[in-house]
Design a protein around this nucleic acid. Sequence first.
DNA 1: AAGTTATTGCAAATGCATTTGCATTATCAT
DNA 2: ATGATAATGCAAATGCATTTGCAATAACTT
Lengths: 122, 122
Amino acid sequence: MRRNTIQKTAIEKVFRQHERPLGIDEVVTYGRELVKSLNQATVYRNLKILIEDGWLERIAHPVLGVLYERTGKGHHHHFYCRECDLTFDLPGCPVNEDDATPEGFIVEDHELFLFGICPSCD
Amino acid sequence: MRRNTIQKTAIEKVFRQHERPLGIDEVVTYGRELVKSLNQATVYRNLKILIEDGWLERIAHPVLGVLYERTGKGHHHHFYCRECDLTFDLPGCPVNEDDATPEGFIVEDHELFLFGICPSCD
DNA sequence: AAGTTATTGCAAATGCATTTGCATTATCAT
DNA sequence: ATGATAATGCAAATGCATTTGCAATAACTT
Protein backbone atom coordinates (compact mmCIF):
# COMPACT_ATOMS: atom_id res chain seq x y z
CA MET A 1 0.00 0.00 0.00
CA ARG A 2 1.12 3.56 -0.67
CA ARG A 3 2.23 5.67 2.28
CA ASN A 4 2.12 9.41 2.66
CA THR A 5 5.56 10.69 3.45
CA ILE A 6 6.57 14.17 4.40
CA GLN A 7 8.83 14.33 1.32
CA LYS A 8 6.01 13.49 -1.07
CA THR A 9 3.77 16.03 0.66
CA ALA A 10 6.54 18.60 0.40
CA ILE A 11 6.99 17.95 -3.30
CA GLU A 12 3.30 18.44 -3.90
CA LYS A 13 3.37 21.65 -1.92
CA VAL A 14 6.27 22.93 -4.02
CA PHE A 15 4.12 22.62 -7.12
CA ARG A 16 1.17 24.26 -5.44
CA GLN A 17 3.29 27.17 -4.28
CA HIS A 18 4.97 27.74 -7.64
CA GLU A 19 2.32 27.74 -10.31
CA ARG A 20 4.67 27.10 -13.20
CA PRO A 21 6.56 24.17 -14.75
CA LEU A 22 9.52 23.10 -12.63
CA GLY A 23 12.71 21.21 -13.34
CA ILE A 24 14.10 18.50 -11.06
CA ASP A 25 16.69 20.80 -9.54
CA GLU A 26 14.05 23.36 -8.71
CA VAL A 27 11.88 20.76 -7.04
CA VAL A 28 14.86 19.58 -5.02
CA THR A 29 15.88 23.09 -4.03
CA TYR A 30 12.42 24.31 -3.07
CA GLY A 31 11.59 20.97 -1.52
CA ARG A 32 14.59 21.18 0.80
CA GLU A 33 13.19 24.38 2.22
CA LEU A 34 10.41 22.18 3.52
CA VAL A 35 12.33 18.96 4.21
CA LYS A 36 16.05 19.70 4.50
CA SER A 37 17.12 16.08 3.97
CA LEU A 38 15.19 15.70 0.72
CA ASN A 39 17.17 13.64 -1.72
CA GLN A 40 17.21 13.89 -5.49
CA ALA A 41 16.49 10.18 -5.94
CA THR A 42 13.45 10.59 -3.73
CA VAL A 43 12.28 13.45 -5.89
CA TYR A 44 12.65 11.37 -9.03
CA ARG A 45 10.73 8.51 -7.43
CA ASN A 46 7.91 10.75 -6.31
CA LEU A 47 7.66 12.66 -9.56
CA LYS A 48 7.18 9.31 -11.27
CA ILE A 49 4.45 8.39 -8.81
CA LEU A 50 2.71 11.73 -9.20
CA ILE A 51 2.76 11.28 -12.95
CA GLU A 52 1.30 7.79 -12.65
CA ASP A 53 -1.38 9.24 -10.41
CA GLY A 54 -2.16 11.83 -13.05
CA TRP A 55 -1.30 14.68 -10.71
CA LEU A 56 1.71 15.83 -12.72
CA GLU A 57 2.78 15.66 -16.32
CA ARG A 58 6.10 15.85 -18.02
CA ILE A 59 6.81 18.45 -20.67
CA ALA A 60 9.76 18.60 -23.05
CA HIS A 61 11.16 22.11 -22.87
CA PRO A 62 13.18 23.19 -25.93
CA VAL A 63 15.81 24.88 -23.77
CA LEU A 64 15.57 23.42 -20.28
CA GLY A 65 14.88 19.80 -21.10
CA VAL A 66 12.34 17.97 -18.97
CA LEU A 67 10.01 20.00 -16.78
CA TYR A 68 7.06 18.89 -14.68
CA GLU A 69 3.78 20.67 -14.20
CA ARG A 70 0.44 20.08 -12.56
CA THR A 71 -2.23 18.49 -14.69
CA GLY A 72 -5.71 19.83 -15.19
CA LYS A 73 -4.85 23.26 -16.49
CA GLY A 74 -6.56 22.68 -19.80
CA HIS A 75 -5.11 23.68 -23.13
CA HIS A 76 -2.38 26.26 -22.68
CA HIS A 77 1.13 27.12 -23.77
CA HIS A 78 4.39 28.30 -22.28
CA PHE A 79 6.59 31.35 -22.20
CA TYR A 80 10.30 31.04 -21.56
CA CYS A 81 12.12 34.09 -20.23
CA ARG A 82 15.65 34.19 -21.60
CA GLU A 83 16.69 36.50 -18.81
CA CYS A 84 15.65 34.63 -15.67
CA ASP A 85 15.42 31.20 -17.26
CA LEU A 86 11.94 30.60 -15.88
CA THR A 87 9.01 29.18 -17.79
CA PHE A 88 5.49 30.48 -17.29
CA ASP A 89 2.06 29.23 -18.23
CA LEU A 90 0.19 31.27 -20.75
CA PRO A 91 -3.59 31.49 -20.71
CA GLY A 92 -5.36 31.06 -24.02
CA CYS A 93 -4.08 29.93 -27.38
CA PRO A 94 -2.92 32.13 -30.24
CA VAL A 95 -2.82 29.30 -32.75
CA ASN A 96 -5.35 29.28 -35.55
CA GLU A 97 -6.16 25.59 -35.86
CA ASP A 98 -7.49 25.99 -39.40
CA ASP A 99 -4.45 27.81 -40.74
CA ALA A 100 -2.40 25.28 -38.87
CA THR A 101 -3.71 22.38 -40.89
CA PRO A 102 -1.69 21.89 -44.07
CA GLU A 103 -3.02 20.01 -47.11
CA GLY A 104 -3.51 16.36 -46.39
CA PHE A 105 -2.26 16.46 -42.81
CA ILE A 106 -4.49 15.54 -39.90
CA VAL A 107 -3.62 17.78 -36.97
CA GLU A 108 -4.48 16.21 -33.65
CA ASP A 109 -2.64 18.50 -31.29
CA HIS A 110 -0.04 21.23 -31.05
CA GLU A 111 2.51 22.68 -28.72
CA LEU A 112 3.72 26.27 -28.62
CA PHE A 113 6.59 27.95 -26.84
CA LEU A 114 7.07 31.70 -26.75
CA PHE A 115 10.49 33.15 -26.03
CA GLY A 116 11.30 36.57 -24.72
CA ILE A 117 11.49 38.65 -21.57
CA CYS A 118 9.05 38.31 -18.68
CA PRO A 119 7.54 41.25 -16.79
CA SER A 120 9.90 40.87 -13.83
CA CYS A 121 13.00 41.01 -16.02
CA ASP A 122 11.86 43.78 -18.33
CA MET B 1 42.78 24.50 -44.04
CA ARG B 2 39.44 22.69 -44.46
CA ARG B 3 39.27 19.76 -46.84
CA ASN B 4 36.30 18.50 -48.80
CA THR B 5 35.80 14.87 -48.01
CA ILE B 6 33.41 12.47 -49.65
CA GLN B 7 31.71 11.91 -46.28
CA LYS B 8 31.03 15.60 -45.74
CA THR B 9 29.76 15.90 -49.30
CA ALA B 10 27.55 12.88 -48.73
CA ILE B 11 26.10 14.34 -45.55
CA GLU B 12 25.24 17.55 -47.34
CA LYS B 13 23.61 15.58 -50.12
CA VAL B 14 21.51 13.68 -47.59
CA PHE B 15 20.02 16.95 -46.40
CA ARG B 16 19.44 18.16 -49.94
CA GLN B 17 17.70 14.93 -50.88
CA HIS B 18 15.47 14.83 -47.81
CA GLU B 19 13.94 18.23 -47.34
CA ARG B 20 13.01 17.73 -43.71
CA PRO B 21 14.70 17.78 -40.29
CA LEU B 22 16.85 14.70 -39.73
CA GLY B 23 18.18 12.94 -36.66
CA ILE B 24 21.73 11.64 -36.36
CA ASP B 25 20.72 8.07 -37.05
CA GLU B 26 18.90 9.09 -40.19
CA VAL B 27 21.91 11.00 -41.43
CA VAL B 28 24.11 7.99 -40.75
CA THR B 29 21.72 5.57 -42.42
CA TYR B 30 21.08 7.64 -45.53
CA GLY B 31 24.70 8.72 -45.62
CA ARG B 32 25.88 5.12 -45.76
CA GLU B 33 23.89 4.65 -48.93
CA LEU B 34 26.36 7.10 -50.41
CA VAL B 35 29.49 6.22 -48.46
CA LYS B 36 29.17 2.73 -46.97
CA SER B 37 31.98 3.21 -44.43
CA LEU B 38 30.47 6.41 -42.99
CA ASN B 39 30.97 6.48 -39.25
CA GLN B 40 28.73 8.05 -36.65
CA ALA B 41 31.57 10.05 -35.10
CA THR B 42 32.30 11.48 -38.53
CA VAL B 43 28.70 12.49 -38.88
CA TYR B 44 28.78 14.25 -35.51
CA ARG B 45 31.96 16.06 -36.45
CA ASN B 46 30.58 17.20 -39.77
CA LEU B 47 27.23 18.25 -38.41
CA LYS B 48 29.10 20.48 -35.98
CA ILE B 49 31.10 21.98 -38.84
CA LEU B 50 28.00 22.54 -40.96
CA ILE B 51 26.36 24.31 -38.05
CA GLU B 52 29.42 26.51 -37.52
CA ASP B 53 29.30 27.31 -41.23
CA GLY B 54 25.66 28.29 -40.88
CA TRP B 55 24.57 25.61 -43.33
CA LEU B 56 22.62 23.61 -40.76
CA GLU B 57 20.86 24.38 -37.52
CA ARG B 58 19.92 22.26 -34.57
CA ILE B 59 16.31 22.01 -33.42
CA ALA B 60 15.01 20.54 -30.17
CA HIS B 61 12.21 18.15 -31.06
CA PRO B 62 9.73 17.44 -28.25
CA VAL B 63 9.59 13.75 -29.11
CA LEU B 64 12.69 12.89 -31.11
CA GLY B 65 15.26 14.99 -29.31
CA VAL B 66 17.85 16.77 -31.42
CA LEU B 67 17.24 17.11 -35.15
CA TYR B 68 19.18 19.00 -37.76
CA GLU B 69 17.84 20.99 -40.67
CA ARG B 70 19.09 23.26 -43.40
CA THR B 71 19.18 26.94 -42.64
CA GLY B 72 17.66 29.65 -44.77
CA LYS B 73 14.10 28.41 -44.86
CA GLY B 74 12.73 31.48 -43.16
CA HIS B 75 10.15 31.41 -40.41
CA HIS B 76 8.32 28.11 -40.38
CA HIS B 77 7.15 25.35 -38.06
CA HIS B 78 7.09 21.58 -37.88
CA PHE B 79 4.65 18.72 -38.07
CA TYR B 80 5.40 15.43 -36.37
CA CYS B 81 3.62 12.33 -37.66
CA ARG B 82 2.93 9.94 -34.81
CA GLU B 83 2.53 7.10 -37.26
CA CYS B 84 5.76 7.20 -39.25
CA ASP B 85 7.78 9.19 -36.75
CA LEU B 86 8.89 11.69 -39.37
CA THR B 87 8.95 15.45 -38.96
CA PHE B 88 7.98 17.77 -41.80
CA ASP B 89 8.41 21.44 -42.45
CA LEU B 90 5.25 23.47 -42.56
CA PRO B 91 4.98 26.56 -44.72
CA GLY B 92 3.49 29.65 -43.14
CA CYS B 93 2.65 30.41 -39.53
CA PRO B 94 -0.71 29.99 -37.80
CA VAL B 95 0.33 31.91 -34.71
CA ASN B 96 -1.25 35.28 -34.06
CA GLU B 97 1.64 37.26 -32.64
CA ASP B 98 -0.65 39.79 -31.03
CA ASP B 99 -2.82 37.27 -29.24
CA ALA B 100 0.39 35.53 -28.31
CA THR B 101 1.68 38.43 -26.30
CA PRO B 102 0.43 38.30 -22.72
CA GLU B 103 0.32 41.35 -20.44
CA GLY B 104 3.75 42.62 -19.62
CA PHE B 105 5.66 39.97 -21.55
CA ILE B 106 7.92 40.85 -24.44
CA VAL B 107 7.67 38.13 -27.03
CA GLU B 108 10.75 37.89 -29.22
CA ASP B 109 10.18 34.59 -30.91
CA HIS B 110 8.13 31.42 -30.87
CA GLU B 111 8.26 27.78 -31.80
CA LEU B 112 5.33 25.58 -32.79
CA PHE B 113 5.01 21.85 -33.25
CA LEU B 114 1.92 20.20 -34.69
CA PHE B 115 1.20 16.56 -33.99
CA GLY B 116 -0.93 14.19 -35.98
CA ILE B 117 -0.95 11.99 -39.07
CA CYS B 118 0.81 12.87 -42.29
CA PRO B 119 -0.72 12.38 -45.76
CA SER B 120 1.30 9.20 -46.43
CA CYS B 121 0.11 7.54 -43.24
CA ASP B 122 -3.51 8.62 -43.42
C1' DA C 1 54.16 12.04 -57.81
C1' DA C 2 55.35 13.01 -52.96
C1' DG C 3 54.84 15.06 -48.59
C1' DT C 4 52.05 17.39 -45.19
C1' DT C 5 48.37 17.13 -42.34
C1' DA C 6 43.21 17.35 -42.03
C1' DT C 7 39.83 13.77 -41.65
C1' DT C 8 38.17 9.24 -40.91
C1' DG C 9 36.96 4.93 -38.48
C1' DC C 10 36.92 2.60 -34.27
C1' DA C 11 36.76 2.05 -29.62
C1' DA C 12 37.08 4.00 -25.42
C1' DA C 13 35.85 7.90 -22.71
C1' DT C 14 32.68 11.71 -21.22
C1' DG C 15 28.86 14.07 -19.46
C1' DC C 16 24.30 14.03 -17.83
C1' DA C 17 19.89 12.67 -16.50
C1' DT C 18 17.69 9.01 -14.37
C1' DT C 19 17.58 4.58 -11.99
C1' DT C 20 18.75 1.14 -8.64
C1' DG C 21 20.67 -1.75 -4.58
C1' DC C 22 20.72 -1.70 0.12
C1' DA C 23 20.88 -0.58 4.89
C1' DT C 24 18.23 2.62 7.67
C1' DT C 25 14.10 5.14 8.78
C1' DA C 26 9.43 6.13 9.08
C1' DT C 27 4.45 5.20 8.10
C1' DC C 28 0.43 2.89 9.16
C1' DA C 29 -2.51 -1.17 10.16
C1' DT C 30 -3.48 -3.85 14.18
C1' DA D 1 2.93 0.61 21.28
C1' DT D 2 4.62 -2.84 17.98
C1' DG D 3 5.52 -5.16 13.79
C1' DA D 4 5.55 -5.37 8.82
C1' DT D 5 7.23 -3.17 5.04
C1' DA D 6 7.06 1.02 2.00
C1' DA D 7 9.94 4.94 1.35
C1' DT D 8 14.21 7.45 2.06
C1' DG D 9 19.12 8.75 1.63
C1' DC D 10 23.40 7.69 -0.34
C1' DA D 11 26.36 6.03 -3.56
C1' DA D 12 27.07 3.30 -7.25
C1' DA D 13 25.20 1.89 -11.57
C1' DT D 14 22.72 2.67 -16.04
C1' DG D 15 21.53 4.36 -20.38
C1' DC D 16 22.20 7.54 -23.96
C1' DA D 17 23.91 11.08 -26.75
C1' DT D 18 28.08 13.15 -27.89
C1' DT D 19 33.11 13.62 -27.74
C1' DT D 20 37.85 12.26 -28.04
C1' DG D 21 42.54 9.77 -28.64
C1' DC D 22 45.00 7.61 -32.02
C1' DA D 23 46.65 5.03 -35.86
C1' DA D 24 45.38 4.67 -40.65
C1' DT D 25 43.65 7.10 -44.73
C1' DA D 26 42.84 10.49 -48.00
C1' DA D 27 42.90 15.61 -49.64
C1' DC D 28 45.38 19.05 -51.30
C1' DT D 29 49.62 21.99 -52.03
C1' DT D 30 53.88 22.18 -54.41
